[in-house]
Amino acid sequence: MRFEIGDKIVYPNHGAGTIIGIETKEILGDEKQYYIMELPIGDMRVMIPIDRIDEIGVRGIIDEEEADQILALLKGDKSKMSQNWNRRYRANMEKLKTGDIYEVGGVVRDLTIRDEEKGLSTGEKKMLSNARQILISELVLAKDMDEEEVIDIIDNAFDNNPHIEEEE
């Protein structure tokens, strides 16, 4: 699939952004074309090799209807997860690597609920933070909202999640 300047895309493990340019760079004597993607969060730019976008899993962003489905997913039941943090970490890492927004949303939901119930290891806290950033970046573009609005919507989804037990 070929993208154009102005297209909104998702780069797995980095999140969503807008293509602001296409550049040719010579690296180690090899000339390649790159998409220059600007992320809506953190004022970051990423260079994506055009000849590897399928292999990397670059895709267009979801539409607003799918964004609403993702927000509904956050209110759902936690998936069955291994009690072993190492297995759980690896399973969640595999889900994030797919770049599938539903998998990312599931990781955010599951780790948020687990954090509320039992707490998370340092590695899982970092994973949750990264997964939230990936989710937020795509929802910002899909819903045409700013970062704070999207964070509030996500936080409200968890505040109203019946699957998170309130502390007495």
Rank of each mutant, 00 (worst) to 15 (best):
E124C: 05
Q69H: 12
R90G: 03
M37L: 15
E124Y: 04
V107T: 06
V108S: 04
R45F: 08
K78S: 12
H14S: 10
K126N: 14
G123Y: 09
N130P: 08
P162D: 06
R45Y: 06
N160C: 00
G76H: 08
K126F: 12
T18Y: 04
A72G: 14
M1N: 12
G57R: 02
I153P: 05
L139W: 05
F3A: 08
L39M: 10
R88M: 03
A157T: 07
I136S: 00
L71E: 12
E167W: 15
I36N: 13
E147M: 07
L139Q: 04
D54F: 02
D100Q: 05
I27T: 14
M47D: 12
T18V: 15
G76A: 11
I41A: 01
R59Y: 00
D146T: 03
R88I: 01
D110H: 13
K143Q: 12
G106Q: 14
N84T: 09
Y89P: 07
A131I: 11
I134H: 11
I48D: 07
V10D: 00
T112L: 00
A67H: 12
I101F: 04
E165M: 06
L120S: 05
K25C: 01
T122E: 13
R45V: 10
T122L: 11
K32A: 09
E4Q: 15
G57P: 09
I70F: 04
G57Y: 00
Y11G: 04
D146I: 03
G76D: 13
G29L: 01
I56E: 05
G60K: 03
G42F: 09
D155G: 00
G123T: 08
T18R: 15
K118P: 07
M93G: 13
I134A: 03
A72Q: 15
A16P: 11
N84W: 05
A67R: 14
I70W: 06
I56Y: 03
E116Q: 15
D54N: 13
I19L: 05
I5D: 13
I153L: 15
D144I: 01
Q33Y: 08
S129I: 02
D7V: 04
T24H: 10
E124A: 03
S121G: 05
N13A: 04
N86K: 15
M44H: 08
P162S: 01
E166V: 09
L111G: 07
P12K: 11
G57D: 02
